[in-house]
Design a protein around this nucleic acid. Structure first.
Lengths: 248, 248
DNA sequence: GTAAAAATTGCAGAAAAACGCAAATTATTA
DNA sequence: TAATAATTTGCGTTTTTCTGCAATTTTTAC
């Protein structure tokens, strides 16, 4: 039995019972507990489960999304800070989801008067208390891993709006391959978002630079701004400098 | 049973009852009180509860200033507890918003397989981690005071679905006047919700009994169940007893 | 003030994890 | 195809973690 097979088996058990024991898995898969532990360590590092003494637990059950700490929060705050400077009074804005986008929402000044469309319930809730904002949450099926609304109805609703500026997070970003993502539903929605706007702003921490995911969202000629926390003339950004994009 | 499992169990009990006893937990989890005390100490040190002699207390309940306090939370939890007993495997459920509904969402067991439509981002986020639930958030303009989605698009989307059971909170409830509310947008949405379902379950703490708001949502012949925290033959419920409604 | 209940502390046995290493398997290259 | 390199796996040893028990101290209740 191959490693990948064990991994999928383990994840199935996790999703079924919310927990697994190293000893059980060792018996069921006919490998030593050492091997199981190594498997669990890998799955833990890639964030798919939570390894504990004796086995592993479902991450979602024991650590709900909203109480997770934000990874690389400082960098994301810097990125968000740059981004909000692009928002002007009276604008119609569209935002995606993700932790960077939530940081952005937290930074929106209370005095701003604008209209925000979003597919993220978390972003919407951050903005709802702002007195001068109109917040419109585009509904759909709530994606379990991305925590944004996805599906045909979202794409349909997006096709009927036209906004001034759209802020998007990126999972994979590469000078050649453009913006990429690993979840099919998410890619579909992001594509629809890009169609609904005149300015596309990509937010991404530098760590994700030069990484490529399974599916393409768009290439760089559809992007108007790219924001990261690095200095614009940093070596890692050299490959982007020739493009017709504003780098912040 | 693994340590972390005990921790989640303890936190669930804390969130449900606002307090736990070491002796109870020892029995329920089949471990010595020593172990429970060690668990409680760890959870206390990480700030998740408040350890006291004999057990532990919910932090939010006893120090409500940190988080936004839920008014009459105990009563709302009792109401929600009754309500979830109406949800059966495989059902299609529609829920409104409000604090009672969020308590209900928190109590949904992880093992339930069902489809949830909701107009409340907070309810949706509570449910999104449940592995077997499909959560569909009906989008629209996010109402600043009710924290639910409202507007024509919500009503339109609601007109296109048909659910088994619909849970609704009530601001005003009166034997003569029926269910009433003070926000026009909210009333419109609630009316649309009632049209989309076969069973209408009203959840309300007894305090709101016999109060009448500005606008009518519906009268009692559209309601199938009414849940409050009082004993069914309590005097205050006398006026409802003749109606064709199940009172819980 | 006394007795009962609960908490703390130290300790020991058991279970699990980490580590290093060797054998076996798989992939890569000539 | 053979040889080499890289990865994976299992085993023995050491280290750490977990848990219950007993003795002692502290808190609570009557």
């Amino acid at each position: 039995m191959l490693k990948k097979e064990r991994h999928t088996y383990i994840m199935k058990q996790i999703n079924l019972h919310n927990k697994v024991l190293s000893s059980d898995l060792s018996q069921q898969l006919n490998v030593s507990e050492d091997t199981i532990r190594r498997d669990l360590n890998e799955l833990d590092e890639s964030g798919k489960l939570l390894k504990v003494h004796g086995g592993a637990l479902s991450k979602s059950y024991h650590f709900p999304f909203h109480q997770n700490e934000v990874y690389a929060q400082e960098a994301k705050k810097q990125v968000a800070l740059k981004a909000i400077q692009l928002i002007k009074e009276g604008m119609v804005v569209l935002t995606g989801g993700g932790t960077t986008m939530i940081e952005l929402a937290k930074m929106i000044p209370f005095s701003l008067e604008a209209t925000f469309f979003t597919i993220s319930p978390l972003v919407a809730l951050e903005l709802v208390e702002h007195p001068k904002l109109t917040v419109i949450l585009i509904g759909g099926q709530l994606s379990k891993n991305a925590q944004i609304n996805v599906g045909a109805s979202v794409i349909n609703d997006l096709s009927e709006i036209k906004v001034d500026i759209c802020f998007l997070g990126a999972n994979g970003i590469d000078a050649k391959e453009g913006i990429t993502d690993s979840d099919w539903e998410v890619v579909q929605v992001k594509k629809a978002m890009i169609k609904s706007t005149s300015k596309v702003v990509i937010l991404s921490i530098s760590e994700k630079l030069n990484s490529v995911q399974k599916m393409r969202v768009c290439n760089f000629n559809q992007v108007t701004h790219f924001i990261t926390e690095l200095n614009p003339n940093h070596a890692n950004l050299a490959s982007f400098s020739e493009m017709n994009i504003q780098i912040l």
